[in-house]
Design a binder for these strands. Sequence first.
DNA 1: TCTGGGGTCCTAGGACCC
DNA 2: TCTGGGGTCCTAGGACCC
Length: 394
Amino acid sequence: MVVLSNNDGCIVARSAEAKALGISMAIPIFKNWDLVRRHRIKVLSSNYVLYGDMSRRVMSILAQLAPRIEVYSIDEAFLGCEGIPQDQLSDFGRQIRSAVARMTGIPVSVGIAATKTLAKVANHFAKREPERKGVLLLDDPELIRSYLDRIPLEKVWGIGRRKAEFFRRNHIDNVLQLVAADDRWIKQHLTVMSLRTAWELRGISCIPLEAIPPKRKGIGTSRSFGRDVRDLADLKEAVAAYTSRAAEKLRCQGLAAGHIHVFIATDAFKDEPFYANAAGIGLDPPSAATPFLCSQAIRLLKRIFRPGLVYKRAGIMLMELTGADKVQSDLFVPVYHQSRQQRLMETVDRYNRTTNTGKLFWAAEGMGKPWYMRQAYKTKRYTTRWDELPVARA
DNA sequence: TCTGGGGTCCTAGGACCC
DNA sequence: TCTGGGGTCCTAGGACCC
């Protein structure tokens, strides 16, 4: 089985069987259709509603078991192990693994070590070495060395392809050599980011656990189109729909935006000349009202739209975020907080949260949405919609 | 024919201030 | 011949993460 990115573009997840058949990560599906048909590989669109719900379930189990939790991404969390005796850490890992499996059916792997970076190394091997049964504690210096000796540079958290290349050009071919490298040299050539990585690999914590998520700096929504978009009218609909989505995320976190940015682009893979442009404007006072944000977004779109082109992608970014209730009052302009606009938005959001059928949306988003992304192989939202519950057959 | 989306952080360089 | 020192803010670009 393989799972595709948005717009059914690239392969972004593969089952063990698909990996064994030589299907590589992040390859466009159209380059793999032969293999897919030959081996009857199941192809699925991604289903973010389902993933989001399962993620929340897993994270809430972890939050009950661990003293502290930092939810790092949809499928990863760092847990603080304060107060758990050293000789019980492996047991704690096994307990996490079995609780999550029992309550969600999802297999997880657990890496335990003195720093986040080393815990990620431990996890890397917990996942891959069957004899570890999904749990690996890295506390012994010799054990740590033996694993650092075996993990490829680019698999270390914070070292990507470019940095690994740079290290190799400079005769650092292995993580142990990086650990032994000179601090000044690392800082000079690769900034403090890599210096932190090196220290973390030596067991000195430089990246603290963040139990309270830091304030968001920007909220964006962008999509590739499911088919050619040439008309300003279609682009306006798409930009309005993306703005509406981003504004929902904004209000969900109680924020207002002080800046809005719109961008559009043609297909970079096509032979035709590539056009991409962006425009932004400050919003004073900051707002979280969809109609206002949409009107601003469409004004910006008109500034960058060039007729006669085939557009492939558009997006909007909301920035300079502040708490909606922290916005400075204005003598001449009504602010969003406690306005009729806000009451309207809250009513719309509440309706859309509590109803299962249909959705209240702005007419500017359009009805047909011909530009909407492809999702030809979508599974059901099994856990969040009454009408899409899994069916058990006798 | 068909190639994802949403983020963060750091640095260098420019423009400006006194 | 010789042209200061100490700051801030902003942006673009690059690298990384999932």
